[in-house]
Each structure stands twice: as structure tokens, then as C-alpha cells.
């Protein structure tokens, strides 16, 4: 597919990268910022701009003669050249390229440095393609493609976060159902362009899936370990039953046991403090439910709509169209 390049100036590249890269000691800080995934603005319309992100690839190499990038966002066999980023009319050793990429997507890419193919040395996100080659990875806003978790993990996580959030109440479940399913397909697409699925967790599981893939990679192991332990605990308690399909009471009990830091059957040798996991889950559930939908949760702004419906919260006034109704702010 043709790559649509976007003009983002050198100042933009420096603004969004050098703080993390430049240093005399220590490692690159907050490497998850690269590549930079940002709002797209086509200069005219919020409606047409909203479907896209700007993705800025940055590579640091003082010696290179030319740097390009190939990836699934474009033609896999034709590198798109990065330009030299300058400061005070001198080359900085940084190379950059901004391209337009659709929202909700996951892509892999590699840099080419003087014809040599290299991984992005800063971005810690990696994936292996079917032929075994390792690639760097990025995803765009509102991405609903599972990245960190397998299907069984996602389903179990769904049941757990439902315990934390207020949406399991009958009246709130009804609200969510009415709120989303009451809309026509066209209206749904217009008002909630990033919603793909409405459930009691309003997409929190998807938010967590993305968060531990990028900003909070350091918490991925906690999830992997604890979901496995929980799966084991529930299977031992309910032989022959699929844990994610157990009744509500099983998860309410499990919540209480995690809160008490005492889960019968829990292997504390593998994870010492079950309550620590619950606290982590609580923070992620709260954040995922009520953060901007671009982070993958709060799908269709359902949790904000719940606040507006139950309480008083005119969230649409401040939030960019077409998700909100503010046409001054472009997101």
C-alpha cells in the first residue's frame, strides 16, 4: 500500500525524543515513547482526520549515509527513507520520518541502515513473524488486536476486572446495553468510531493488554504469572469447569481472597503477595475504564457516558470531535 508521509518538522522530532535519548550516563529513559504515535490532522476535517494517527520513526546513527524503514504499514520490500534531523543547521545524528497510519492497527517494521536491516534499538516492542524473523512493533490508538495475552488469559482477566468496576450492577449493565445497542449501526460508527465490542469491562482488558505491551512492560510478568496461578486455583476448585465460565460468586470469592492476601491453593513460591496483583489490577481497571478511549479501554467512551448518565459530567464538551463535540480541540 502507498505510504502517506506527513510533514512534521525537526523541532517536533527533537521535542518528542531527545529527552529520552540524550545522556552521558544510564540507559535510554522511557523507550516506549518510540516510535511516536500521535494525533493526525489533515488540515480540514476532524471526521476525516480521526481515522488516522501520525507515526514518527526515529533512529539515531551518526555514521549512517542513509536510513530507511520497511514495515507492514507500507510496502515490505521498499524502504521509505528517513531524513536527517538538524539543529542549528547541523546534522544531529537523528533520522526521522512521519507517516500516516490507520488507527486500531498493529504493525512490524525494521530500519535499513546503509542497506543493512536492523531492529529499532530503542523500542523494546518486538515480534517474530511466521518465518521466524524478529521485527520491531508498534500499534496505533484504539488498537483492539490482542498483543500481550492469549485468549484464555483475556477471558479470565475480563472476569477479574468486572469485579473491580461498577458495571456489573444490574442497572449499569442495562445502561451499557441500552447505550450501545440502542444505536443504529451508522450512529454507532459515527459516535463511537473506535468501539468494537461492548461488555461489562468497557474494554479494560484491552487497555491492560496494550499498557503492559508498552508503558508498563515491567508489569507484564505479574499478569502472566498470576493469571496462570489463578487458572490453576480455579481449576482445582472446580474440576472439569472452564475458569472463565464460572459463576459470579467464584470470582467474588477470589477477589476477597486476593484482598485478604490469602488464596487457598496459591503458590506463594511463584508469586508472594497475591494482594499486590489485586492492587495492580485495581489501578489498571480504574485507569482503563475512564481514560481516553485511544488507550484501548473506555470503548466508545462508554464509561464517560455512564458518568454523564448517572451523575453530571458533560465530557463531550471538552473532548475532540467526532468522539466528543469540541471542534476547536483536535485531539
Amino acid at each position: 500500500m502507498p505510504v502517506v508521509q506527513v510533514a512534521r518538522d525537526d523541532q517536533y522530532v527533537l521535542n518528542h525524543t531527545t529527552r529520552f535519548l540524550a545522556r552521558d550516563t544510564g540507559e535510554v529513559s522511557e523507550p516506549f515513547h518510540l516510535p511516536v504515535v500521535d494525533t493526525h490532522w489533515d488540515g480540514t476535517s476532524a471526521e476525516t482526520s480521526y481515522r488516522f494517527n501520525d507515526v514518527t520513526f526515529v533512529h539515531r546513527d551518526d555514521q549512517a549515509g542513509e536510513v530507511g524503514v520497511v514495515g507492514t504499514f507500507g510496502d515490505l520490500h521498499t524502504p521509505v527513507p528517513l531524513r536527517r534531523v538538524r539543529f542549528l543547521d547541523e546534522p544531529t545524528g537523528l533520522w526521522a520520518l512521519t507517516v500516516r497510519v490507520g488507527k486500531g492497527q498493529v504493525h512490524r517494521y525494521r530500519f535499513t541502515v546503509d542497506g543493512r536491516s536492523v531492529l529499532d534499538p530503542v523500542n523494546p516492542q518486538r515480534l517474530r513473524s511466521d518465518n521466524g524473523q524478529e521485527w520491531s512493533r508498534f500499534f496505533t490508538h484504539g488498537c483492539a488486536v490482542p498483543i500481550s495475552f492469549d485468549r484464555w488469559e483475556l477471558r479470565l482477566l475480563e472476569r477479574l476486572v468486572t469485579q473491580v468496576l461498577p458495571f456489573q450492577l444490574a442497572e449499569n449493565r442495562r445502561f451499557l446495553a441500552d447505550f450501545y445497542h440502542g444505536l443504529s449501526r451508522a450512529e454507532r460508527d459515527r459516535r463511537f468510531p473506535l468501539a468494537f465490542l461492548m461488555d461489562e469491562s468497557v474494554g479494560v482488558v484491552n487497555f491492560i493488554d496494550k499498557l503492559v505491551a508498552r508503558e508498563e512492560r515491567h508489569n507484564l510478568d505479574d499478569y502472566k504469572t498470576c493469571l496462570l496461578l489463578i487458572d490453576g486455583v480455579l481449576r482445582a476448585r472446580f474440576p472439569g469447569r472452564e475458569p472463565a465460565e464460572l459463576g459470579r460468586q467464584a470470582f467474588m470469592d477470589l477477589y476477597d481472597e486476593l484482598a485478604a492476601n490469602n488464596v487457598p491453593g496459591w503458590d506463594t513460591g511463584r508469586y508472594g503477595e497475591p494482594r499486590h496483583f489485586l492492587v495492580l489490577l485495581r489501578r489498571h481497571a480504574m485507569t482503563g475504564a475512564f481514560a481516553h478511549p485511544k488507550h484501548g479501554g473506555n470503548q466508545g467512551a462508554a464509561a464517560w457516558a455512564y458518568l454523564a448518565e448517572r451523575f453530571a459530567f458533560d465530557w463531550r464538551a471538552a473532548i475532540e470531535a467526532p468522539l466528543g463535540r469540541n471542534t476547536d480541540y483536535r485531539g
Binding site: A7, R8, Y12, T39, W41, E215, H292, H295, R330, G331
Partner: peptide, 23 residues
């Protein structure tokens, strides 16, 4: 937005910008 060459601000109305992910 009004000082930016590309019409976009680097500041967002996004709670994850005020106090974001765990570090």
C-alpha cells in the same frame, strides 16, 4: 494548536498526560 506548524498541540485533554503510567 495556534502556534504549531501542523495545527496540532503537543498537549492533550487526556488524563494519562497529567499523571500517566506507572514508572
Amino acid at each position: 494548536q495556534h502556534t504549531s506548524a501542523d495545527g496540532l498541540s503537543d498537549f492533550k485533554r487526556d488524563e494519562e498526560f497529567a499523571t500517566g503510567a506507572e514508572k
